[in-house]
């Protein structure tokens, strides 16, 4: 029930930000639309830890700035690679171990890997990530281990 309230609040905030009209009619439409959306989500059984991950919000404030910094660093690395007069790409598929316990955690980790240029997740089998890296020798595992640790921390306690 708590998650239904959270979802409704987030949807209604989105409505208000996108419309920014405060007449009774439009606000009423907004309330009704969000109630219908939450009701449909409830009937679909998607109001769980995976679809409405509000328990991650606080920790996400610590994770996202770190992720943005990582993205910036790897952007600079790939930019130097592309702008070099001699193209020194050495792509290959490498495998990472993911220590997350939930699908949501693996999803976040896979998307974080893909968001940092230089590595793209191409497949996931259980806790084994298949990752395409543009320069194989630059992947020493330490950065990915760091990211893996942080996503596991972000995920918090595993779902029951």
């Amino acid at each position: 029930m708590n998650r239904a309230v959270w979802l409704w609040g987030i949807l209604f905030a989105l409505w208000v930000v996108l419309s920014w009209h405060f007449t009774t009619l439009l606000l009423g439409f907004g309330v009704a639309t969000c109630v219908i959306a939450v009701w449909v989500a409830m009937r679909m059984g998607t109001l769980d830890r995976e679809s409405v991950p509000v328990h991650l919000i606080l920790r996400a404030f610590a994770y996202v700035p770190w992720l943005v910094w990582e993205i910036f660093k790897s952007n600079v690395r790939v930019a130097r690679l592309i702008l070099a007069p001699r193209l020194r790409v050495d792509p290959s598929i490498v495998h990472f171990f993911a220590s997350q316990r939930t699908d949501l955690g693996r999803f976040i980790y896979a998307n974080s890997i893909t968001l940092t240029p230089g590595t793209v997740t191409t497949g996931i089998v259980g806790d084994d990530f298949e990752v395409h890296a543009i320069v194989q020798s630059e992947i020493d595992g330490s950065e990915e281990n760091d990211m893996n640790r942080r996503v596991t921390w972000l995920e918090g306690e595993a779902a029951p």
Binding site: M1, R3, A4, M42, R43, M44, G45, T46, L47, D48, E50, T102, D103, A159, P160
Partner: peptide, 16 residues
């Protein structure tokens, strides 16, 4: 099963 939770149980409709 559409809508099944990760532990395999089906949600109780309307009483989340």
């Amino acid at each position: 099963r559409p809508g099944a939770r990760s532990d395999g149980s089906l949600p109780d409709r309307g009483a989340t």
